[in-house]
């Protein structure tokens, strides 16, 4: 479990997180929403100790991030994909970059080779195994970061706007990957500005000026933050169906079409 207890955080004078309390259980998949600057990235960076609370504490499986000797263990458990993927790439080839993280946490050589292929297949970049990351386009770099993190098989996966730079087909792939990871039992936290993506999670946390102002079921977020965050046709349509009692939760397009077919029978 990940826990935030009365967490405050400031950059100098600027309040970034304001009395955040949060509990994330194993196996959850949570979407974090909020306007630019609302504190999503700061919150994520607290989880693996990149930022430390000014007050309160953050703990991962009972280990507090301010206990320095635990940080290594925490970072092994928490895989993080940054908002700006470029800053995260260290290898001189794609395959090296993926291996780098694994090497750091002591994955045996034979296993490493296997996982490199596995994750590259996952993100559909097998043909770029020997490519230099510098030569990849933006979206490809982001996919590489996803692959590198997946290869380390962390228990918790944090993805800060993982789909913001990827084309829709690539995005479907990432979302499907996220779904699969969650099914495998990984705990997933991601931030997004694409409202349609909340249909892949069962819980949404909404931040405003560093405060959690909503934490609950995706369907319920609509009436709370629609004014501020806006909506989409897809979500609006489902919300109508929900209000009229035709569906109980958000669905992906396929699932929704199937449900409508049933209803029209």
């Amino acid at each position: 479990m990940i826990e935030f207890k009365n967490v405050n955080f400031k950059y100098g004078e600027d309040i970034a997180l304001n009395n955040v309390n949060l509990k994330i259980s194993e196996g959850e998949s949570i979407a974090f929403l909020g306007l630019n600057g609302s504190g999503k990235t700061s919150l994520f960076q607290m989880i693996n100790g990149l930022l430390m609370p000014n007050d309160g504490y953050v703990s991962v499986d009972g280990m507090r991030t301010d206990e320095e000797e635990k940080l290594w263990e925490i970072r092994k458990k928490v895989g993080m994909i940054f908002q700006n993927p470029e800053s995260q790439i260290v290898g001189t080839t794609v395959e090296e970059d993926i291996a780098f993280g694994m090497e750091n946490i002591g994955v045996p050589r034979v296993e490493m080779v296997k996982r490199v292929d596995e994750v590259l297949r996952f993100v559909d970049m097998e043909d770029l195994k020997k490519a230099e990351p510098y030569h990849l386009s933006g979206g490809q770099k982001q996919l590489l970061c996803v692959a590198s993190i997946l290869a380390m098989k962390p228990k918790y996966v944090i993805m800060d706007e993982p789909t913001s730079m990827i084309d829709p087909i690539g995005r479907e792939r990432i979302l499907a990957t996220m779904n699969d990871m969650n099914k495998m039992g990984k705990t997933l936290m991601f931030s997004t500005h694409i409202l349609d993506e909340i249909v892949v999670s069962k819980r949404v946390v909404y931040l405003r000026n560093g405060e959690i102002v909503f934490d609950g079921k995706p369907m319920e977020i609509m009436k709370k933050v629609k004014e501020e965050f806006g909506t989409s046709d897809f979500i609006e349509f489902q919300y109508r169906l929900y209000r009229h009692g035709f569906i109980k939760h958000f669905m992906k397009p396929d699932e929704l079409s199937e449900r409508l077919r049933e209803l029209c029978r």
């Binding site: 829709p168 087909i169 995005r171 479907e172 349609d196 989409s232 046709d233 897809f234 349509f237 992906k252 397009p253 396929d254 929704l256 079409s257 409508l260 077919r261 029209c264």
Partner: peptide, 12 residues
Amino acid sequence: LPPPLYQVGQKI
């Protein structure tokens, strides 16, 4: 990829 609502629209 069609936007999600199109995907539904095409099917129904």
